[in-house]
């Protein structure tokens, strides 16, 4: 071994030895997470994805999103979002998921998925999103989007977008319904808050 190679080998060995001393904790799954950052993400609504946005990504064949269903096996068997995979919080505690993909979580309402979101973020996964109101949101916004008789122009535009997705996923868009059929805030997140998603008030979970 010549002198230059010996120097390079000694440098590598020194740096590796120092690495063992600097990181001796066993073993690190993911990275440490700043909890204040997590709180800020939750406050800003950056932890959520809407059913319409999720449907759009699935329809476009976005290969960078992985949809996970946290409901029971029976509920999953009965109905699930196309392309979703059944899992549980216990499985997510040890399962290794690709870190470069976006992980979209949903449960029945949203609470269970929100707990899974925290778990995955603490495990160092950065691209994790929760479907705002769970499977109910998918059913009401994607499979059966509704438009009130007295809809505004913005609501009409959003309905057209949702109707297109609804037909793709085998749903039935309904127009001309009474506004009382739409619960308070039905359009709040999609139509009115769209210009600035960060100002969206957190809903669900």
């Amino acid at each position: 071994m010549n002198r230059r190679n010996a120097t390079l080998a000694a440098t590598a060995a020194t740096l590796a030895g120092a690495a063992a001393l600097a990181d001796f904790r066993s073993p690190r799954h993911g990275t440490q997470v700043d909890v204040t950052q997590l709180a800020a993400e939750i406050e800003a609504g950056d932890d959520h994805i809407s059913a319409i946005d999720l449907a759009e990504r699935i329809m476009k064949g976005d290969g960078n999103i992985r949809v996970l269903d946290l409901r029971s096996e029976a509920e999953f068997g009965e109905f699930h979002i196309p392309g979703a995979r059944l899992t549980s919080i216990a499985a997510l505690a040890r399962e290794q998921l690709p870190r470069d993909e976006t992980i979209a979580l949903y449960s029945e309402g949203g609470g269970h998925a929100a707990q899974a979101w925290v778990l995955l973020r603490l495990r160092g996964y950065r691209k994790v999103l929760v479907l705002r109101e769970g499977i109910y949101e998918w059913m009401s916004r994607v499979l059966e989007p509704r438009l009130a008789k007295d809809a505004t122009a913005a609501e009409r535009r959003e309905f057209e977008r949702a109707a297109l997705l609804s037909r793709y996923f085998g749903g039935v868009p309904r127009s001309g319904v009474d506004r009382s059929e739409l619960h308070t805030g039905y359009w709040t997140d999609v139509a009115q808050a769209r210009p600035d998603a960060r100002s969206t008030r957190r809903r669900g979970c």
């Binding site: 590598a12 060995a13 001796f24 073993p27």
Partner: peptide
């Protein structure tokens, strides 16, 4: 499929020890 797993995680050793093993 094992997911996105590192060499150190598979061997259940610290990341620093994984680095030492690969270097050796």
């Amino acid at each position: 499929a094992l997911g996105s797993v590192t060499f150190a995680e598979m061997l259940n050793v610290s990341r620093g020890m994984g680095i030492v093993l690969v270097t050796v």
